[in-house]
Design a protein around this nucleic acid. Sequence first.
DNA 1: TTAGGATTCG
Length: 785
Amino acid sequence: MPVQLLKIIEGQSETPLPSHLQKEDLQHLQEGCDHTNKYIQGIVTLSYPLTKLRDGTDFFKIVLQESENLRSQINSINVLIYGKMAEDCAKIIRHGETLIVAGFKVIKLPTAREEGRHDCHLDVSEEGGSAIYVSVTEMVQIILPCSSGNMTCLCSVSPKYVYTPLDHLKDGTVVNLYGVVKFFKPPYISKGTDYCSVVTLVDPSNVKLTCSLFSGNLDSLPKIYKVGDIVRFHRIKIREYNGQMQGITSGGFASLTFDGTVGAPVVPRTSSKVYTFMDEEQKTIEELRIWAASNISISGPAAKLSGVQPMLFFDLTCQLVGKAKVDGSSFLLKVWDGTKCPYPTWKVPVEAKDLEGEKVLLHQLRNLVVDILVYDNHVQLAESLKIGSFLRIYSIHTKLSSADNEDASHIEFHLHGGTCYGRGIGVLPESNPDVKELKAFLESVELRDSQNIESMCSMDVDSTFGNVTDLELHLQRCQQLSVTVLTDHQDLSNTELKTITNSTAPQQYRIRAKLKTYKPQKLHQSVKLHCSKCNSLQEVPDRDGFDIILRDSASTAPNPELHIASWYETVTWTTQDQNQRQIAIHFVKHDEMLQHPEDTLLMIEGGTLKEIWKLTKRFKCVIPVRSTEDDLELLDLSAPFLLQGNVKYYGCKQCSTPKSMKNLSSIAAEQQPSWEPTEIAQVLGIELLQYVFIMNFTLVDETGALNAYLFDHEKFFQIPASEILTNDFLQQKMQMTMNTLCPPGRKLGDLPWLECFIRSYNVRDAMKNQVYYQIFDTTVAEDVV
DNA sequence: TTAGGATTCG
């Protein structure tokens, strides 16, 4: 048999090779020499998929690396296998395995040589009298489904790793597993002799496993950069601790780490040059990514220095520009991320001689660099960091220093001792996508001349930290000038309110008045949905209604016939709970390809409120659907027909005529699908409802009073009505605006002036004619918002 | 051996 499996125990083959064969070094291999009795031994570092040549011959290409002369200039060679042997080898050869090739032909082709690779290749085929011996080590054999020592049996079974789901772990076993990182502590120096990293994994069985990983070599611990990363552990030992399973490194532990983002390239991060990784494993990663997308909470985009708030913990991705010894238990890191912290930041006093880093750069960037003081166990790691490297510092504490001295208060950055909440420092490689983005940004900042930075910084400080006198002036200004401004018709002169109420409608006026009161006082109640076609107004449905509709639609199982379509790709799974709920997600393709999550529109069947909400965090658009016999369709229009970011989009029940979901494919076929809600609504036959603020302002001047309506999408408050319900910050901002327009507890004389444009109009019913007033072409003044 | 997730002295 030309392809044989050899059982190798402790480096020795159980079955000896034919005695006439002698080992040859790659270095001594030459075209034209006689290699009849020679063999080449090496590790498979690369293999290509089995293909067929034009004449129908099977063809399989691998790269073999000499395990011994690794340091020599030439340590690997291409091996081209033809015919039946190609087919056999493709079945059983895996990365990392040791291979012996005998009876080969040495061929030299005038192609560009790769570094370290021999400029000849080996031609191998049964017809050419070649033989290949694949070694199966004892370790691999243990986990073979068929662990018999019988060679013939082994020959028919490809060595394969078995992965244990997290709900099937047993005390005292050594297993291989996959998991999504739910929590991690970046490697730190333990109290023993090794580095330690603690990692908590979850998988679709919804069971958690916390692993304590130790290694004297930092590189052999998994390279996890964020929650949501996916890991593959080989040979991790399972033990029971406090009634729960825990993982711990054992001999031969190895790991691969993958970006957990759906659609990102499946490239393992590993220190190991040799690892097995095949199509099947790629599929596992992709499935886990999709599962994680709706089951793992990923913290939002990492904080920037420009977005820090006092009294919180955050992770910072940054570049190290300086470092200095402070004392025995603390160490200073000077870092920047290209943005400016909105608060004055503290500068830790250090001796100039202790400061490491480029002085000129530190001076140029002095307004953008912040000092981070790291303590205790982090000191040793911090000392070893290289200036210029990219870091992610986890769980930095921002502390507002008490302003009990004369200095203005400032913000301090501490990395406290200990590793709670994953507190620590990680070095990111330049290949990391976040680092690439940061680098590009830092370069753009450096390009601006330093004068620009100077003026930008001083301006920021002045506007953020005005003194008390400024504040008083600001208040006075509010009382004299208008807190609202007209966006048009400035040439008109003011009309007194009494004149307006005594005139006939319809007319338009410019007024100067004070806001005595407004309704509703609970501002969130001012948000309604408006149909521009039938002019109807309705309340924004609450989440309970949506939940009921989702539960109702989840009782219909997804129709498998709809899972194969040219314009989307479907993924399905069943929940592990007692309900055994079936979920199907249809990812709409563009140019027959899946897009990046942030550009992707997906349709989901069987999802819960929470799952849908999580998907909206990752994907551009989410449309809840259900299966019919021959198509997908929208749910009841009391539910949002589209979710994008924080916004739920609704359709008018009266004016919409839902069309087939297939119409979405016309948008998907556009050159760059923008997935605008208006466009989606249009192709789906939905009359899109607009979010509006509806308020009633009671306006007064010296002559009288009138009630005017405000009907505003975004222009008046400069806040989109669509986002106010889901954004606390915007709600606060709107409340503050109203407090400026109509300060609570103030006498009429002390209220600020509003300049508004209003129109009067008639509303007639059977009984009488009534005049209404509406505010328009008016906005809140820039210094009020 | 080390850690065994679950913030803050500085």
